[in-house]
Amino acid sequence: MIQKPSLFSFSIDAVLLGRFVRVPIQKGNILDLCTGNGIVAILLTTRTKATIDALDIQPELVELANRNVLMNQKGNQVSILEGDLNDLPASVQQKKYDVVTCNPPYFEKGQALEKNLNPHFAIARHELHCTLEDVIRVCSEQVKYKGKVAIVHRPERMTDILLLMRKYQLEPKRMQLVYPKEGKSANMVLIEAIKGGKAGLETLSPLMVFDEDDQYTERFKEVYVRQ
């Protein structure tokens, strides 16, 4: 993956999202919102033959994502699109997807931006162009009935996420908390919902990233570094 220090680079959360969501193996359509440099879409190509549309609002990241798609020889499967989540390109609006994924901005617009924050980082981290409700509403609008929506976010927003999913007919079905290490509070949550699904949430066993020696745990390596 090509990354630039001046742009927002992917981290563990994006990789875990790409591993967590359940996808059709042979065919189908997938939409990845807030794709950044295309990491989630490219990871998904290792698990599915579905066609993938990946959208980001920042032209610099769209250019980088296109380069990554070409470098990984995924141009026949992944289409990178520039656009606003709240004003989707016509080619996206016309479709309904089997799966929609999103690694959205984590911090609410009202929260203070870090001093002198790079504008690319600000858009990626803060809800400047879309709110959490926008993300979940659009995911629901674009996914098929009985299709899946998966997002990664911060645990402190979990109540909002679950309530908004129910509001937009997305029934949370699988959830996993991710912890930096034993004894620390969770700093990520992965949630998968089904459009029009029945009630019933499966809480997966927690995932610890680091052990007591600050090395990746064996279980985390099985998820994160698998080929």
Score class of each variant (00 low, 15 high):
Val135Met: 02
Ala112Leu: 12
Val138Arg: 06
Ala150Arg: 11
Leu117Ser: 09
Phe107Asp: 04
Pro104Cys: 02
Ile161Trp: 12
Lys173Leu: 04
Asn116Pro: 01
Glu114Thr: 09
Lys144Ala: 07
Arg137Ser: 08
His153Thr: 09
Val135Pro: 00
Asn116Phe: 06
Phe107Arg: 13
Arg166Thr: 13
Lys167Cys: 05
Val143Ala: 01
Lys144Thr: 13
His126Pro: 12
Gln176Asn: 08
Ala124Ser: 15
Pro172Phe: 00
Met158Val: 15
Arg125Trp: 05
Cys130Asn: 10
Asp160Val: 09
Lys144Glu: 09
Thr131Glu: 12
Asn116Trp: 04
Leu170Pro: 07
Val143Asp: 01
His120Phe: 08
Leu128Cys: 10
Asp160Gln: 14
Arg154Val: 15
Gly110Arg: 13
Gln169Tyr: 00
Leu164Val: 10
Gln93Gly: 05
Thr101Tyr: 01
Glu108Thr: 14
His129Ile: 01
Phe107Met: 13
Leu113Ala: 11
Val152Phe: 01
Ile161Ser: 05
Leu164Pro: 12
Lys173Phe: 02
His153Ser: 05
Val143Arg: 00
Ala150Leu: 08
Leu162Arg: 02
Thr159Met: 13
Asp98His: 08
Tyr168Pro: 14
Asp160Leu: 05
Leu113Phe: 02
Pro155Asn: 02
Leu163Val: 10
Leu117Val: 14
Ile161Lys: 03
Leu170Ala: 01
Lys148Arg: 13
Arg174Met: 08
Val100Leu: 03
Val152Gly: 07
Cys139His: 06
Tyr106Val: 04
Ala124Glu: 07
Arg125Glu: 14
Tyr106Gln: 09
Lys95Leu: 10
Val143Leu: 02
Pro119Val: 12
Met175Val: 10
Ser140Ile: 11
Ala150His: 06
Glu171His: 06
Val100Met: 04
His120Leu: 07
Tyr145Gln: 09
Val138Ser: 01
Met158Phe: 12
Lys144Cys: 10
Ile123His: 01
Gln94Glu: 13
Gln93Val: 06
Ala122Thr: 13
Arg157Glu: 00
Val99Arg: 07
Ile136Asn: 01
Glu114Val: 05
Tyr106Pro: 04
Tyr97Trp: 04
Tyr97His: 03
Leu170Gln: 05
Ala124Ile: 10
Pro155Cys: 00
Cys130Tyr: 05
Ala122Arg: 12
His126Glu: 08
Cys130Phe: 09
Glu127Gln: 15
Met175Trp: 03
Gln94Ile: 13
